[in-house]
Structures are given as C-alpha cells and as structure tokens.
Nucleic acid binder design. Structure first.
Length: 291
DNA sequence: AATATGCACAACCGCCAAAGA
DNA sequence: TTCTTTGGCGGTTGTGCATAT
C-alpha cells in the first residue's frame, strides 16, 4: 500500500549472484535460519535487498533442491497439477518438494506449454476452467471438491502410466550438464562444500552425493537443533513458505501439514505418482522436512 | 567463420495477503 | 479498526549458451 519496493533504497546490487555472496547468505542462514530476511542485508553486509536474498535462498541455495533433468513422471505430474490448479506454481511445488516453484514455472513455460497447448490436451487448463482466480481455488477445492476430484481423475486417466512403465526407469540422457550448471559448477562446488558441513552438523549428511532424503533429514535435524521449527509452523506458513497453500490447508482441513497430506492422498488416491519418484509421497506434514 | 535465432534459466518487478503496531 | 511492514506468489525480463543458417 504505497510501500516503496525494498530495492528502491540506494546501493542495492542487482543481477547474478556471485559465489561469495552465496557463501555469505548460506552462512547467515546457517546461523540464523531462513527467516527475518529484512535483517539479512544489514547483518551480512550484502548489498542485496531482502527479497532478493530470500529468492536466492529458496530457489537456489536451499538444501534438497533437485535441478534440471525433469523425469517423465515429474513432467506428467506437472501437467496434471497444472490442469487442476492452473498456474499455481507454489502449490504445485508443494507436491514436488525437490523442485522450486520457479523451476516448475520455467519448465512449464519452456517445455510443456507449447507441447501441451499444441496437442489440445489440457484444454481445461488453457481455458482456465480449473485455474481459478487468486484466492478462489482453495475455496473451489473446498466447496467443489467433487468436481475437482473428477477433473483430476480425468487428467490422470489421460496420461495414466501402465504399471509396468511406472516401475521402469526410462533411460535418462547422459545428463548433459545444463548451461547454468556448467557455468556455475565451480562456484556451486564451494556452496556444496559449505552445505555439506551444514548437513554433517545435522548428523546424517554424507559427503559428496547426498540423497534428498538424507539431506532433508539432516536439514530437519539442524532446524530442530535450532529449535525454531515451531515458530515456522506457528506463523501458519508451510515449510516451503507457501502462505496461500497453507490457507488452502486451513480452509479445507483441520490442521496445517498432515491434513494437507490427507487431501493430497484423497485427491491422488488412484496411486498415480505414489512412491515411484518420491514426489507426492513425501511427508509434507512435517514442517521440518523442507523449508 | 560469422551472424541470427531459439532455448533455458536466474533474477527482477508488481501485486496481494497476513501480521503487527 | 486502520495503517504499515514484511513475506510470498506469479508474471515477465535479461542474459548466456546452443543450434541453425
């Protein structure tokens, strides 16, 4: 409400983050936790606005993020969720804890949008039938849940994967490092080393390649150590920081996390996507699982 | 070999809603 | 109750690399 953008203050740096800035930010979050972003620039000396710090953390530095190489199952899930939720990237990301909303959004816009609209599939999403306006889709889920469920069923039936294909690991391309990964590789290694120490602090981190499970576990342990996870859930915000998603949880169900899992299980109880990729089977109810 | 075009992704911008004073 | 502050979300843009011409 007339509030000037935080970045309007003078001397705020913009553009790509440097490895040094990343290290500073990671160090800060390691010490103070991923909140109180307004204090980050002053506390760290970073010439970045608080919003930029938060974005950098949630979209890039946050542990447990998987980057690039979306699997077929992830792609199917995105298509299905998009048909159901519309462009609610954050809500979609809550089903895919290893992916950020920004990643999903980018993947949709660059890979799926054209293909999806070209084939005519997902016409409902295109027409916005299920892409309710802001603040309304949660209510739709609550009041029109049967219709929503039916829509999801239809979406699933369109792309239903045969059981044999579900367990089959499609041959992945030889993991060509993406441009960004390649250009940032050396820098990312430094960050990874720091994060490695971080996860060790949590007690279950493994040097080198750490599974997402162990990563999230150790991160969870870290925040338990800090004793701050409760404050996170106390604000009514989800670990992923999804204010609006948590609103859906509150509106549709009794409690924050577990009830959302129940809704999710209910919506997806045909078993599509369950267990195979660790996507929607992730216990979202644990506020410490991801942040 | 040089240039044009397309693609992928990181980051920014504006708006909105929740929380607090 | 109203206003301000802060965090979060979705849309959009900018930049660098790859591929085509």
């Amino acid at each position: 409400m007339g509030r000037p953008p935080c970045c309007e203050k003078g001397g705020v740096k913009k553009g790509p983050w440097t490895p040094e800035e990343d290290l500073v930010l990671v160090s800060y979050v390691q010490d103070h936790g991923p909140w109180n972003w307004r204090a980050v620039p002053t506390s760290t000396g970073l010439m970045r606005c608080s919003k930029s710090c938060r974005l950098r953390w949630t979209n890039y530095l946050r542990p447990g993020i998987k980057r690039g190489n979306f699997s077929n199952q992830e792609e199917k899930l995105i298509i299905q969720l998009q048909a159901l939720l519309g462009n609610r990237w954050a809500a979609m990301a809550s089903y895919m804890p290893e992916r950020t909303d920004n990643d999903i959004k980018n993947y949709w816009n660059t890979h799926l949008k054209k293909k999806f609209t070209k084939t005519g599939a997902g016409a409902e999403a295109k027409s916005g039938r299920w892409a309710a306006p802001k603040g309304q889709w949660e209510r739709r889920l609550q009041t029109d849940i049967h219709t929503a469920r039916q829509a999801l069923r239809e979406a699933l039936s369109l792309d239903r994967v045969p059981p044999s294909a579900k367990t089959e690991q499609l041959p992945q391309p030889p993991a060509p490092a993406s441009q960004a990964q390649a250009t940032y590789a050396s820098s990312a290694e430094n960050i990874a080393r720091l994060l490695e120490c971080w996860t060790h602090r949590g007690g279950s981190g493994t040097a080198g390649k750490v599974s997402s499970e162990s990563r999230s576990t150790s991160v969870s342990a870290f925040f338990n150590d800090e004793g701050v996870s409760a404050s996170n859930s106390g604000t009514g915000r989800t670990p992923a920081g999804n204010t609006r998603t948590s609103k859906a949880e509150d509106a549709g169900t009794a409690g924050p996390g577990p009830s959302f899992s129940m809704l999710e299980s209910w919506l997806l109880d045909d078993g599509v996507g369950h267990g195979d990729t660790g996507l929607v089977s992730v216990p979202l109810g644990d506020p410490c699982e991801f942040f």
